[in-house]
Design a protein around this nucleic acid. Structure first.
Lengths: 359, 359
DNA sequence: CGATGGGATGTGAGCGTTAACACTATGCCC
DNA sequence: GGGCATAGTGTTAACGCTCACATCCCATCG
């Protein structure tokens, strides 16, 4: 049972926002008919000019174009969508756009969509719950989007993607390989392994890991990459400290490591946590990188200006956006939803926070 | 000119994205007619149920609702928009959604819009040029948005807002008081004064300022607030160091201040630059806050975990979003565009990066 | 007991566009 | 000169919905 077709009422914002009850009469815009009349042609000819179909004589085309300009004519997208059954709109479901990762992807996707002639309608969600994702999808369906890009990098949210009817193209971003939806994402296993091997190759006996929270594919994958690299180097795998992506959690986790003098290298699952870790180490007087090396993941713009500049794993978010869009367009064109998974290879950015282990 | 504010866009998409040329035939969805037939009523009754109009008997309503569920009926928004002349869609023009400020506002606005039953279509722009803004507005007009929220905090972009035809509601966010569009924003003058007075009241003889780039209303206003506070305390106003909002520019600017032992307090126009400044001071061994106090602006989530935790000016971005939306809804309801300016008062968040001046 | 009223429902038109097809003129061929 | 392609244009019918109005039924009242 999918419940209500209609929308939820407002929760109650501190500034009550209400939709206008008595909308001002929208002034009539010029229609295709008006343009046709002014240009002395039929509306169909106007339509032909608009859609650049060949069979229009140059002088007619000019006359029509002039008329359009004169009337400031804007084609009515609703009418067009009604008859063509294509909205030229993509939906974007995204979690907390305030975070660097999602924000960058939104940006990348939006740019790519625009280049492809698509509009982008956004539905950001407060929590990565199944319910929230379903609501967002419902809202986007109401707008008859042709496709949906879902940036919902948490298991509980990913499962909700199966609710997207097959008629709508779908791409999951950063949703991990487990989901049975087409997806695009950075290869987190490789990225984490890159970071870990980098530290091991600097002579560290082992590498500690501050991971992302449980239930996040990216957290899991990064932990996997870390573990694999340790195994490859036959290094012992210390217990994972679980964070929640926030600087605060990195700080707290690192406080627990900071007291242990055998800890010389820490790989954090994102840059925010690494930032927190830097602070925790600094507080107890452990120097980075002299005493402890720290590596992050994401490459936030501030990375080079942290104390010290952060070694991290760089993801090409713009490319993720483009790939997602390409995958979506492919689905729209073919009408099928191939079980395709695209993994982008991240790069290690070595800065000052990682250094050779002291003997 | 101090260079780029933005992160570099990939110059040439390695994955070319093209709109599908041969769209798969979209399968027919259930229409209101289908629902009506199944429920044994007229399409008009279905419409009444959908729009909650009173005059439907409970049992009819139930039957219709059942039929809808059974057919997984989705009202066709294009058809509705066509006849009502209302798209229930808002446009969002925004600059680099990767930055914390814009991203937070987008988030706030989207939430508020959704609560008000509006869809949000986003048009992010690569540069804050007149041209880019015009393009974005054009694109949104094509979608017949009922209103536009423009987060374009630069003069060159603000001027383009006059191109929005009066029939479309419009709100500028962070566009400064100079523009003749309705606007919502944080009171930057007050915020900057708050920060500066805080430093002066701690006994600093004066406060240095690393400002945002020229042509940005917010940069100008923050500089004004800073200057006013200095005047109020009869403190000398040192020359302004101009940054570009980036951590890098804060770093470079602070390097120039760091050598001067008379510098004991620095107010940075945003947190990124403050972060860069922290690093520059650290590099030359000037301790914060023991030797130099630093205050930022924005209150990014990482602030409390910088070295040291950053004193800053907090803005309520969510509230900005809600207010923008309320202002937009008001315009839509009345059909007028009042010259209203809403300034929200920011708050000082005192953390460890600011301290009493040593005698 | 017919008139009145209002609650519940149905009918028809039209929103602005594109698709399908019909039409006209022109040019070219045999 | 008839046939036929083809370029250029027009006509008509949807698309799925809401609005204005018409209709029906039953209760109530003078």
């Amino acid at each position: 049972m999918s419940g209500d077709v209609r929308r939820q009422p407002a929760e109650k914002p501190s500034t009550p926002v209400v939709a206008p009850t008595s909308p001002a009469v929208p002034e009539r815009m010029a229609t295709m008919m008006d343009v046709a009349k002014l240009a002395g042609v039929s509306h169909q000819t106007v339509s032909r000019v608009l859609n650049d179909q060949a069979k229009v004589s140059p002088q007619t085309r000019t006359r029509v174009l002039d008329a359009m300009r004169q009337l400031d004519y804007q084609p009515n997208s609703a009418a067009r969508a009604l008859v063509t059954r294509r909205s030229k709109t993509l939906g974007l479901v995204t979690f907390d756009t305030t975070l660097f990762g999602p924000a960058s992807m939104v940006y990348g996707i939006e740019q790519a969509a625009r280049d492809a002639g698509y509009f982008v309608s956004i539905a950001s969600i407060r929590t990565l719950s199944r319910r929230a994702v379903l609501d967002a999808i419902g809202q986007l369906r109401l707008q008859s989007v042709e496709g949906i890009v879902a940036i919902v990098p948490k298991d509980s949210a990913v499962v909700a993607l199966s609710a997207v009817p097959p008629g709508i193209a779908l791409v999951g971003v950063g949703v991990g390989g487990g989901a049975d939806v087409p997806m695009v994402g950075v290869d987190n296993v490789v990225g984490a392994a890159l970071a870990t091997r980098h530290l091991l190759s600097l002579g560290h006996k082992t590498v500690h890991h501050i991971s992302g929270p449980p239930g996040w594919p990216e957290a899991r994958e990064r932990a996997t990459g870390w573990r694999e690299a340790l195994t490859a180097y036959a290094a012992p795998a210390p217990p994972v400290l679980v964070g929640d992506w926030s600087a605060r959690s990195g700080y707290l986790a690192a406080q627990r490591l900071a007291g242990d003098p055998t800890v010389t290298a820490v790989f954090c699952a994102n840059d925010q946590m690494a930032l927190g870790a830097l602070r925790a180490l600094h507080e107890v007087g452990r120097r980075v990188p002299a005493d402890v090396s720290v590596v992050g993941f994401d490459d936030v713009p501030e990375g080079p200006y942290l104390i010290p500049p952060l070694t991290t794993v760089q993801q090409d978010f713009a490319e993720v956006g483009r790939r997602s869009l390409a995958l979506l367009m492919e689905q729209i064109a073919t009408g099928a939803r191939p079980h395709r998974q695209i993994h982008l290879t991240p790069q290690l950015k070595v800065r000052d926070s990682s250094a050779r282990a002291v003997a």
